[in-house]
Amino acid sequence: MAAAFAGYSYLATPKAVSVSADGAAYSDGKLVMANPKLDGFTKDNRPYNMTAARAIQDFQNEGIVELEGINAKLPVNNDNWASVTAPSGTYDRDKNTLDINGVMTITTSDGMVAKFKSAYLDIGTGGMKTDDAVDIQLKGTEVTSDSLTVLENGKVMIFENRVRMNIDPRRLKTAQNTSGDQDVVQ
């Protein structure tokens, strides 16, 4: 679970980056880009990509980019990927942060699904903070809380306020048997 958040830290030091958009126009003193796409490689040479339906940049504050329809595919490790979707967010280039102001969903290829009502990501430090409800599910377990702070590229996760963990032993046992793990919860 923590590794999914670490994927954001890769964006701080990419090896190579390619940026494109289907078109750009000026509207109300702002630059509006259709279907902007960012492709690149992490510092350890794993590909990632991020897209949005629209990106809006105000000429008065060029460091701020409003994003709509956010989709990203980020490497978690050699065998696991995280898909991130969110309806909108604000990227601050100067602070290297992304403020997601709608429901964000992270789905990893190993089966984890994490849902946040909002999230503030510090891409430079690999940190994340939300003061809204969190719901994380993985192989028969579910953790919910009213807030979450992620530090040190996902190494430290602090769940706060009404933290609950539910374990379904049948699903956990099935998931472990499928993956070949020997330690089985009875």
Rank of each mutant, 00 (worst) to 15 (best):
N177E: 13
M33E: 09
V185P: 08
T108F: 08
D58T: 10
V65C: 05
K73P: 00
E66W: 04
V184P: 00
L67T: 02
S109N: 05
P14L: 01
R171H: 12
L121Q: 04
D135W: 04
N177D: 08
K37H: 07
I136K: 05
R93T: 10
A3Q: 13
T144V: 14
T13I: 01
N101D: 13
T141N: 09
T13A: 11
G140T: 12
T85K: 12
N96M: 14
V163M: 10
T149D: 11
V134W: 00
A53P: 03
N153H: 14
L172T: 14
P14A: 06
T42A: 13
T105D: 04
G140Q: 09
M33N: 01
K73E: 11
S18H: 14
I70D: 08
N177P: 00
K37A: 11
D92V: 08
D79H: 05
V103I: 10
M157C: 04
F59V: 10
E66T: 07
T105A: 02
S179F: 01
Q182N: 14
S18N: 14
A119P: 01
S179H: 03
T107N: 12
Q57P: 02
P36E: 06
N71P: 05
P169L: 04
S18R: 14
D181F: 13
G102F: 06
T97I: 10
N166S: 08
K129L: 09
I158C: 02
R164M: 14
N166G: 09
Y8E: 02
N77T: 08
I70S: 10
K15Q: 12
T13G: 07
E160L: 06
N161G: 01
G111V: 06
A21Q: 10
L98A: 06
G102M: 03
Y48T: 03
L138P: 00
S9W: 10
G69Q: 05
V150I: 15
V134I: 12
M157F: 06
D44P: 03
T42F: 14
M33A: 11
R54A: 08
N96E: 15
V185T: 11
Y91M: 06
A52S: 13
D131Q: 12
S20W: 01
A114S: 15
N101Y: 05
P36N: 05
L67S: 07
V163F: 05
V163I: 12
K15I: 00
R54P: 02
N49G: 12
V17Q: 04
K43M: 03
K115N: 11
A55V: 04
M50Y: 01
K155A: 14
V32Y: 03
S147P: 02
L121V: 13
R164E: 13
D28Q: 15
L74G: 09
G23C: 12
V32H: 08
Q182C: 03
G111Y: 07
E142F: 00
Q57I: 11
L148C: 06
G69H: 01
V17S: 04
D39F: 01
L148R: 00
V163A: 15
M50V: 15
A55N: 06
K117S: 11
G111P: 02
I64H: 04
M157N: 08
Y10I: 01
S27H: 08
